[in-house]
């Protein structure tokens, strides 16, 4: 090479060698203490859900009419082996909350997984191909968005009947429009960039361009939006269960536990309150964690 190699040596740009933007953002996220504490809470709930049979002190469905509406341990009449008291059928509330976390977390994760997969595919197609593909998908999104979410889900549940798979489908039917809109917008912006054009100039197929050139570059906002939406889906699932359209008894679900305790709220506050607190804690933790994710991954929040 006769060319003067003034600029040919490797330059260390701010970040260290081998560090990607993604890793830098991840490090930024890890430095956020509140977000990390929230991640720990979420992680704790996930562990509870996975190891429920070993952690739960009692069988969640075992009724004992002698312990009907037994108060929490620290109140008069309480017992330390039934820490959070018992419900109207004498079932241990703590055990039911632990088992209930399985339903909430599983449905939240499953709905977001299905919805994000469908949303990414639809959003990429709409944003990349444009034309009638975009018109069809975008109008469908507009139509779905015009329904109130809960009413839509209730309608679907009424049609399909209750059950775990049906809840996931009922929620995912509408949930996919959220990642779809994000992906479509990002794709529209990214497809005009020169590296996408370069891939086309090299002879790359549409599938390659969408999957390898565009998708990796728009994933950050999708991840952020999806984590925020998990919290939303958990609340929706609890709402459906509260209304009796969710997981059917005797399976423990936080929403149905809150509903069960409603009749005794004045006399036995613990039956509704503890599952309610569980919903609050998990949703709050997910929200704070996803907020931290957004702060770390969205360039607009970076100095």
């Amino acid at each position: 090479m006769t060319v003067a190699d003034i600029d040919a040596g490797p330059v260390a740009v701010a970040s260290g060698a081998g560090q990607t933007i993604f890793r830098r953002n991840l490090a930024r996220f890890a430095a956020n203490r509140l977000a990390m504490a929230s991640v720990a809470v979420v992680f704790l709930f996930v562990l509870l859900a996975i190891f429920a049979p070993w952690i739960a002190p009692h069988d969640p469905n075992e009724t004992d009419l002698f312990r009907r509406l037994q108060p929490p341990a620290w109140q008069a009449g309480g017992e330390w082996s039934y820490l959070l008291g018992c419900d109207a059928l004498g079932r241990d509330i703590l055990s039911r909350i632990i088992y209930g976390s399985r339903i909430s977390i599983f449905i939240g994760a499953a709905v977001i997984f299905v919805a994000t997969t469908v949303g990414i595919a639809a959003g990429l197609a709409a944003g990349y191909f444009r034309g009638w593909v975009d018109v069809t998908i975008s109008r469908l999104v507009d139509i779905l968005l015009s329904f109130p979410y809960l009413i839509f889900a209730i309608g679907l549940m009424a049609m399909m009947g209750p059950g775990l798979v049906n809840i996931i489908l009922a929620l995912a039917y509408k949930e996919w429009v959220i990642p779809c809109r994000v992906v479509r917008g990002e794709t529209l912006a990214t497809r005009e960039l020169e590296y996408v054009e370069a891939a086309r100039a090299l002879g790359a197929s549409s599938a390659h361009i969408m999957a390898r050139e565009i998708l990796p570059n728009i994933l950050s906002p999708v991840i952020v939006v999806s984590t925020i939406r998990i919290a939303h889906v958990i609340i929706l699932e609890a709402s459906l269960s509260f209304l009796g359209l969710g997981v059917q008894p005797p399976t423990a679900s936080w929403g149905s536990m809150v509903a069960d305790g409603r009749a005794f709220i004045l006399g036995a506050w613990w039956v509704s309150t503890f599952p309610g607190l569980a919903i609050l804690l998990l949703v709050l933790a997910i929200n704070v964690a996803s907020q931290g994710l957004r702060d770390a991954f969205d360039p607009r929040f970076q100095e």
Partner: peptide
């Protein structure tokens, strides 16, 4: 291409 910043996929 003209722009050496936009013409390379940042994730590759």
């Amino acid at each position: 291409f003209q722009d050496p910043y936009a013409s390379l996929n940042p994730r590759s």
